[in-house]
Simulated scan of single mutants.
Amino acid sequence: MRGLLPHPLLSAGLFVMWMLMQRTVMPGPALVGAAVALLGGWALAVLQPGRTRLGRPGAALRLLGNVAADVIRSNLGVAQVILLRRKDRRAGFIRIRLALRDPQALAILAVILTATPGTAWVEYEEEEGWLLLHVLDLIDEEAWVRIVKDRYEAPLMEMFQ
């Protein structure tokens, strides 16, 4: 059974999402949904992601709180920049050296930085650990480095090491 459904929860979730998006229980969409679910499970099995064991649930909760607060604050900041057409806004790129090396932790960091309005993960140089980040309203580079390192990287390192 494991060969047919290597990731049964993922496949079930894909099937349910497909059926919800189709808004019908007709056999045609259900058959396509089953195919999508099987292919999704097989694709993840081919990628063979490493098993991750998260430690420190307190760090995860702290990170979640930081991200939620920063997303709200960034939404307000971006709205202010756009609606008020501030002239003092200065977009730019900053380079940040990361100590984080775990691929799953880096993926989470990329999602956090890209999901936070006003920032975008542009590039990561794996050998040296340099992150290139684009910031819409870059007033203080050091403040952004501290945000990434203290609010995001530190809890991720606690969780993944």
Score class of each variant (00 low, 15 high):
137 D>K: 06
50 G>C: 10
98 L>P: 00
15 F>V: 03
104 Q>C: 11
95 R>P: 11
17 M>R: 10
6 P>T: 12
42 W>V: 07
112 I>H: 11
33 G>A: 06
36 V>Y: 00
148 V>I: 09
132 L>R: 13
131 L>Q: 01
61 L>C: 01
141 E>F: 14
51 R>F: 05
125 E>I: 08
98 L>T: 01
3 G>K: 07
109 L>A: 01
91 A>I: 01
75 N>M: 04
18 W>Q: 00
21 M>D: 09
16 V>C: 04
27 P>G: 01
121 W>E: 05
68 A>N: 14
8 P>Y: 05
34 A>E: 06
90 R>Y: 07
34 A>G: 07
137 D>F: 03
96 I>C: 07
104 Q>L: 07
131 L>P: 00
4 L>N: 03
49 P>V: 04
111 V>S: 13
143 A>I: 07
73 R>Y: 06
20 L>R: 10
49 P>K: 09
75 N>G: 12
161 Q>N: 08
20 L>Y: 13
150 D>S: 14
26 M>G: 06
5 L>C: 02
140 D>S: 11
104 Q>P: 08
23 R>I: 00
32 V>H: 01
113 L>P: 00
121 W>A: 05
68 A>F: 10
159 M>S: 01
161 Q>Y: 14
45 A>I: 04
125 E>T: 10
32 V>P: 01
37 A>L: 05
9 L>Y: 07
135 V>Q: 06
136 L>M: 10
62 R>K: 11
3 G>C: 08
104 Q>Y: 12
71 V>R: 06
161 Q>A: 10
85 R>C: 05
160 F>W: 07
12 A>F: 14
13 G>C: 11
88 D>K: 05
81 V>L: 04
37 A>D: 03
32 V>C: 13
26 M>R: 07
153 E>H: 11
112 I>R: 02
89 R>E: 04
158 E>N: 00
142 E>W: 15
119 T>V: 03
21 M>N: 11
21 M>H: 08
118 G>N: 03
90 R>Q: 11
128 E>A: 15
152 Y>T: 00
38 L>I: 12
151 R>G: 02
117 P>F: 12
86 R>Y: 01
32 V>L: 09
154 A>K: 13
156 L>F: 06
109 L>V: 02
23 R>F: 00
52 T>V: 03
81 V>F: 02
34 A>I: 13
1 M>E: 12
132 L>P: 02
83 L>K: 11
126 E>N: 09
161 Q>F: 09
103 P>Y: 08
55 G>R: 15
123 E>K: 14
93 F>I: 07
6 P>S: 05
71 V>I: 15
85 R>Y: 03
121 W>H: 10
51 R>L: 03
90 R>L: 03
138 L>R: 07
94 I>G: 05
120 A>G: 12
150 D>C: 11
83 L>S: 07
55 G>Q: 12
149 K>R: 15
43 A>P: 01
50 G>P: 04
159 M>L: 12
88 D>Y: 00
87 K>V: 02
9 L>I: 09
43 A>C: 06
27 P>V: 14
14 L>V: 14
11 S>W: 01
156 L>Q: 05
78 V>A: 13
46 V>M: 03
29 P>R: 03
133 L>V: 15
2 R>V: 12
